[in-house]
Write a protein that binds this DNA or RNA. Structure first.
Lengths: 132, 132
DNA sequence: TCAATCAAAGACTTTATTAATCTATAATAG
DNA sequence: CTATTATAGATTAATAAAGTCTTTGATTGA
């Protein structure tokens, strides 16, 4: 079990947008270059962030992406959910008689992790930033 | 990102072994049947649990698997690590100048989940069990 | 209006991982 | 010695992740 690379790209892009000037949009070209990934691929990832209402996009010359919410209103979990989806990490596919005890514990464990990620906002990292 | 089915089979098998008589080994045949999975496949999974010292195996007639440790000394995390490995869920593959802040937070979040799973012992579930 | 610029979308390919099977080998009880 | 049971390795099949290519649509500015 691993987080996808797409999640890594999304998190880094968001962190970059947070640290950038908030008014001028930044093109995928530049964002992709910084991370060593192809623009078309990153573009697909960013579209998910747009649909999740974390960033907004502008077409045409001088277009690009910029934050849609305030730094302190964007959590790690928001970004991760936008990319990975919100389904539970664990599904018991067996058909038991009763509700699966194992499933219940696994879900609760996951909740612990998500709680941490939800409390971790972009604003918190922005301060600690150096170059990237 | 999903836990593998193998992890589900491993957890259920362990829970069954916990609830079974501790002295007579149980064959993979029976264990596999209960979960609707092929014996050879389950066997591979159980071999990992053997190598992790959670259960022990006996070949030959009347052989099979049984717990190697006490219920209260086997955690969810032990089982999960045996199957999924112990590598971090998140790897930042970008080559930054500095240590990756994102990585640090992701690792900490994971630690929250693992802490819960480590404290959750087989003995705790054994009491709540009904049929499976 | 036209050309340049940029995002969105869909089809497609490649690669990696997970899930599962098959077959052969080794150990052990009776 | 034979039936039973675990272990190991090779192999295949299925699914998911990663990435490319090409077309379409929106927007700006000359």
């Amino acid at each position: 079990m691993k987080y996808s690379k797409a999640t890594n790209y999304a998190l880094h892009t968001m962190l970059y947008l947070v640290s950038a000037a908030p008014n001028k949009p930044i093109g995928v070209q530049l964002l992709a270059e910084r991370q060593g990934v192809s623009p078309t691929y990153l573009s697909k990832i960013l579209t998910k962030l747009v649909k999740a209402d974390l960033i907004e996009s502008a077409s045409g010359a001088n277009g690009g992406y910029r934050l849609k919410r305030k730094q302190e209103e964007i959590s790690f979990l928001d970004i991760i959910h936008a990319i990975e989806g919100t389904a539970s990490l664990f599904d018991c596919t067996l058909n038991h008689s009763s509700k699966c005890l194992i499933q219940q514990e696994m879900v609760e464990a996951e909740r612990q992790m998500e709680q941490y990620l939800q409390n971790k906002k972009m604003s918190e990292l922005a301060g600690k930033m150096t170059v990237d």
